[in-house]
């Protein structure tokens, strides 16, 4: 890239509009968000304090398990027996179940934003079952393990999203 082109690009960037209007009115949500945080700041903080470790623990657990598997796979010599993908999936499922239940318990007093979130959760459960069945046929398939992990992440994020503060709906 010539310095002339580079200079021209930087000039164009500086002349870009600093003002782009959003396509919808965001104020209602902001006003509600301010109100809600003012009213429930201490309570919200307490809630966040109780939920955050669960969500974080779930992420850390997934990453740790997956990382451990990949690293042990690379380091293991022929004499070292590495756990199979299937075993790892079983451990991951067990941990996920515990995390999910704990998260649901911690959020049980908060209203959900959608009516059909439990149905969505069940559909994800079915997807996880299908992946686990595929893993039984193909126990060393790392791609399936990643898919399973992805489904679990989606479940956690679905639970968190439907219990998000009201202002995010607006």
């Amino acid at each position: 890239m010539s310095s002339k082109n580079s200079q021209r690009l930087e000039q164009q960037a500086q002349s870009l509009s600093r003002d782009i209007q959003p396509e919808r009115d965001l104020w209602q949500g902001i006003a509600l968000g301010i109100e809600q945080r003012e009213e429930t700041l201490p309570a919200t903080n307490d809630k966040h304090r109780s939920q955050w470790p669960l969500a974080a623990a779930a992420s850390v657990m997934f990453v740790a398990l997956f990382g451990w598997y990949m690293v042990s796979g690379m380091q293991a010599g022929p004499s070292v027996q590495q756990p199979s993908v299937e075993q790892l999936a079983a451990t991951m499922s067990k941990q996920h179940q515990a995390q999910k239940e704990a998260l649901l318990v911690s959020l049980q007093d908060q209203p959900a934003l959608t009516q059909n979130w439990q149905q969505q959760l069940s559909e994800l459960d079915e997807a996880a079952l299908a992946i686990k069945a595929a893993l039984e046929q193909d126990p060393d398939n790392v791609a399936l393990l990643k898919m399973l992990q992805n489904v679990y992440q989606q479940q956690i994020s679905l639970i968190e999203r439907v219990h998000a503060p009201k202002w995010r709906q607006i």
């Binding site: 600093r18 003002d19 782009i20 209007q21 959003p22 965001l26 104020w27 902001i30």
Partner: peptide
Amino acid sequence: KQLYETYVGRVYALCL
């Protein structure tokens, strides 16, 4: 709210 109306375009442009 007046501040919001004045600056929402700037904030949104940067966020976008």
